[in-house]
Nucleic acid binder design. Structure first.
Lengths: 196, 196, 196, 196
DNA sequence: AATGAATGAGGATTCATTCAT
DNA sequence: GATGAATGAATCCTCATTCAT
């Protein structure tokens, strides 16, 4: 109704502290999309732009490039954990959720390859924690005497499937992932995100 | 019309055209080392420096970044082909040579993931050719009724093993690769480079 | 994932967003000077250096080489337009201002030759717009029945004078420009920049 | 890595001293074409390549970039001189030949603008000589009392027409050149190269 | 707390020029 | 005398990161 008629310094609205959490989420969503479209090496500025925030905000929330990727992964991991904790979840169901993320997100793939290239040891440590959390979640539902029971075989199999997952579209990647599990003789449930 | 200021100072030795082939080889060797140390995104200048040649030489021999990687892969592929053609070679032996290259060279891993990220279609096409050549070499020695016999299973398995191969040292990577083959129920011979 | 090695050393002063407009102006001024001294092909880095800003600022304000030149020209054109709009301006006066810019700025000369060499069509289109604006400004004061009245003759004459303008110093170039107008039988007012 | 390829050092044929003159001509022809297509700043390597000779040959015949351009111009100038010396040649005929070269060759245009940008003073001196030769040739047929008679007006007019000559095709450029001569009130004969 | 401009190092690429053969 | 590979300086351009506002 009233038009304050900016005299000179028109600055974009500062939404105050309330916006902080929302910005962080927006950044993660944006990062996921940008990663999917341009790979893990996409410019950080592109992520900030897509999130609709300034570059500074990105740095406020994430000290470095790796922290962004880890934050993206973190939610993927959380979904796997939730799938594992869900009432009556079976191992193949959890694998299905895991597989869905493998086919969805380039960043998730990168996780498994993280230690190859040297990085900030802190980021690496964080990645290992995430990897462990995935392992724990899976083991929670791993039936006694399952083929992937022996120590290390579980995450090795996950890494192997991630290696099989490549392709131009998600559909192709899903097919390959399923074929890989089949070749390992492991049953997988529906490949889809976890939804409470 | 603006010429460089003609330093005309001291110039490093120019070893003449004779050095061309040697330089190309040196570049490939250097690229392999740099790739192993810093990944496929390592600066091209680092490759040239390690090869002991000017940047221009790299561009003379390889029009773009992908061409360098392909040249590196090409020799890996050739070794696999030679292993497959060797007198009395058995399938596990060929797999052993292949596996050695998987554990040795980051670039070789990239080959299997090439189609994920869009690239120059020409480079991609070349990568697919290399991939096919690996497939053909392996199939040459694939026993009747082998577990990886069904179409596509062969390269899928290779991709899976490549996914399992990561780790700080070659030894660790070799252990994981062997474990991956074991999990697939496939016998592998000695993991080593092919030497006539 | 390879970050620059974070010098984190001493950084030159960052004058903040306030400096944006000032920087843009400084770049245009610098570009004009550099163009005059070294021609339109002068390195962009030289322009940034003379403007006292980083290279990035130049690219922020001007997406490419042509945009810089166009920005420089734009102000020249604006001056001609202002001269044409000035109270009581006569045609020769406007020509005088135009001629001053012709003798002052190598970039302005390039404008008339722009369509010869193929360029980004967008930049070319912009150049044509500028050319049109010059034509409109001149025509605004063109007396009925003037020798340059017939369509196209006006800009043709301007192009011809621009062809005549070359020489080591501005004074020489001004003499030649005046001689050229004389040869065309066109009266020119004082050759000087427009100042309100 | 490297195949034997050539049995011994296969080198391209060396045609001996006889080829020297032919090479020089080929270079000039090539330069004219390259200049027309890519402007005066085209890479010298492109000229050598199109001439079908090595880069060294170019440097043997022409010490620097300017020397190539001058050599190209030299023949243009020679044609104008020949046109002026031809039995019964009239001034408009000579102008027609000159105009043809103006519309044909970007390099020829550059000649008139040469002194604007500082260059090797030697090359500049050479350009001035060429310019003088054009002037002399024209004056040889300049009728008593011609409009361009007064000192300096002749070359000024030529420069002016060169300024008018721009356009995407030779035909357009020719039209503009003719319009420019008309505006100067100077008659021009057929616009075409001189052919004995 | 947010914005987004500024900085400049780093990497890609081109090309003039030299020189071994 | 010719060839064309080698050199590396110069330039373009991109982005990670800082910081005034």
């Amino acid at each position: 109704m009233t038009q304050p008629l900016t005299p000179a310094e028109r600055r974009p609205p500062n939404h105050g502290p309330k916006a902080a959490a929302r910005n962080r989420d927006a950044l993660i969503v944006a990062a996921r999309e940008i990663y999917a479209a341009h790979g893990l090496d996409a410019p950080l500025s592109a992520i900030a732009r897509r999130a609709g925030v300034g570059q500074g905000v990105l740095y406020r929330h994430f000290p470095d490039r790796a922290a962004v990727a880890i934050a993206v992964l973190d939610e993927n991991v959380r979904q796997v954990e939730q799938a594992a904790s869900a009432e009556g979840a079976r191992f193949p169901d959890v694998l299905g959720v895991l597989t869905w993320h493998l086919t969805e997100s380039a960043a998730f793939l990168g996780l498994l390859h993280a230690d190859g290239a040297a990085g900030h040891s802190e980021a690496l440590a964080h990645a290992l924690v995430l990897s462990d959390r995935v392992g724990s979640a899976l083991r929670q539902r791993l039936p006694e005497g399952h083929r992937l029971g022996p120590s290390d075989d579980l995450m090795l199999a996950v890494a192997m499937v991630s290696g099989a997952v490549s392709g131009p579209t998600r559909e192709v990647r899903e097919l390959r992932a399923k074929a890989a599990w089949r070749l390992l003789g492991v049953e997988v449930g529906p490949v889809r995100p976890f939804e409470g």
